[in-house]
Design a protein around this nucleic acid. Structure first.
Lengths: 127, 127
DNA sequence: CTAGATGCAAACTCTTTGCATTGCC
DNA sequence: GGCAATGCAAAGAGTTTGCATCTAG
């Protein structure tokens, strides 16, 4: 198995993602971190984000403009509650989804394997 | 307000989308329709899909490779059950979502405004 | 006839890749 | 020292745009 090095760039990206619990694009991350490291390359940001996604430490989604954005998160199956005011992202479990399964089967004989859910609203601070 | 013309290209695209209830990319649509109309331009397909999306007759999503794909659907709020075998897309209402609201509020004081859901599984024919 | 639609080609944006260099372990 | 990571530049892929031409109404 490939050995992973702990580099300052990787640490900086992970720290930023942990500190800022919102969906950030590669370019946004690049712009922020370039202040401290002017030689940072956008391609490095992309490669690191790809790595973090493989490791399950980051999940991503596609914005309406087609850009991909990333959040730090756990590896377990869960969903995101996204604040439409500040962009804050919280994880939500999906216990209640089980109730869908039977309804869906009965309604149109569809056998549920997986699901993808995002919730939008206002977080505790923005309400 | 702008006047919309009914052109053969638009009719062909709408017909194809109605006939094939799966998420199709612009390029896929282009390839299929080019057989009957060799002078068809990919940009026309994009422009038509954009128009249909504005009119609420089409919804779209982003595939894992970054491509956008489109399905014909109703304008009302609903979700899609996507067959992982044949790609068939069915609409699903979201009555059961209401049960989430109270749970979500109690759990982490998040006020739910909207949600985006996709289900994956096997449709009646592919089970 | 006229505003809207189309084809074609060029431009754009985001993302990926090749390769020489640098740096972690 | 050796393999992994990075910077830089160039290439890719999907999508959008400008403009002359064509066409529905």
């Amino acid at each position: 198995m490939r050995t992973l090095y702990t580099t300052s760039t990787r640490t900086a990206i992970v720290d930023l993602l942990k500190r800022d619990p919102r969906y950030l694009t590669a370019t946004a991350i690049y712009r922020i971190l370039r202040d401290d490291n002017p030689r940072l390359a956008l391609s490095t940001v992309y490669r690191t984000l790809e790595l973090l996604a493989e490791l399950g430490n980051v999940s991503f989604r596609t914005e309406s403009n087609g850009e991909t954005s990333y959040v730090f998160c756990t590896d377990e199956h869960h969903h995101h509650a996204i604040c439409s005011v500040c962009g804050h992202v919280d994880e939500v479990d999906c216990a209640a989804i089980d109730q869908f399964k039977s309804a869906l089967m009965a309604q149109q004989s569809f056998e549920l394997d997986d699901h993808s859910i995002e919730f939008y609203g206002r977080c505790a601070r923005c309400r």
